[in-house]
């Protein structure tokens, strides 16, 4: 017995999917669709829309993934599967260019000398690190700090009684050095100081500008 009420959109959708996937449709809904012209028209609209969407997607994918491309993909998958069991190859770093082949007699000597070079470099680094850690760069004699100033300015030395104590003079000289160093860094970061590079710097967009524009 057919329904007196019309089918809802959800039931129409279920009918469409049942027909498409070959599942058994609800018999009551199928009967109603067969007898009610209004619901049948709605069903045809829905089916036309969804079939259109499906056809569009198929056409688009088929245009992008042509049979040749699919064959290439199959080949690529097969190649990757062949490589699955094998360990990755390690390519040795080229010791020298192919053109300048050294004579075999010298090869051993070259290896030995390169080892000596590496060992001496490591030893130098070690000695430098040890000496650097033992030597206190901050300790300066009272005469060593103003030495540069006295060379530039040949003014008479103030009497020893007016000279600041070493404990006060040292932090002042260190902080002024630091400030000069930081200002140099700021200048360098602000833009290239080389005149030839300045047009390129002007053309190069800043990260901040790009991120602002993207937002």
């Amino acid at each position: 017995m057919p329904w007196s009420r019309h089918l809802g959109d959800a039931r129409l959708h279920d009918c469409y999917f049942a027909a498409r996937t070959g599942e058994a449709a609800d018999p009551l809904a199928a009967d109603h669709l067969a007898e009610c012209s209004r619901c049948a028209a709605r069903y045809r609209d829905l089916a036309a829309f969804l079939d259109g969407v499906h056809a569009d997607v198929l056409a688009e994918t088929d245009a992008v993934f042509t049979p040749e491309r699919l064959a290439a993909q199959q080949h690529q998958i097969a190649r990757r599967l062949d490589l699955l069991g094998h360990a990755a190859r390690v390519i040795t770093f080229p010791g020298r260019l192919a053109g300048d082949a050294a004579p075999p007699a010298r090869a051993g000597a070259a290896v030995v000398s390169s080892r000596w070079l590496a060992a001496s470099a490591a030893a130098g680094l070690f000695v430098g690190a040890v000496v650097g850690s033992m030597y206190d760069f901050g300790v300066r004699t009272p005469q060593s700090a103003p030495a540069v100033a006295t060379a530039a300015r040949p003014a008479p030395q103030p009497p020893a009684t007016t000279a600041p104590p070493a404990s006060l003079a040292r932090p002042v000289s260190v902080s002024s050095d630091d400030e000069a160093f930081l200002s140099q860094i700021e200048l360098a970061l602000g833009g290239p100081r080389t005149r030839e590079l300045q047009p390129f710097d002007a053309m190069t967009p800043r990260v901040q500008e790009i991120s602002t524009r993207l937002r």
């Binding site: 997607v57 198929l58 688009e60 994918t61 992008v64 993934f65 699919l70 993909q73 199959q74 998958i77 097969a78």
Partner: peptide, 15 residues
């Protein structure tokens, strides 16, 4: 299996 599922797979992945 690749041949059987490839077309459907590229359709899903592309969408």
């Amino acid at each position: 299996l690749v041949v059987a599922h490839q077309r459907r797979a590229v359709r899903i992945a592309y969408q």
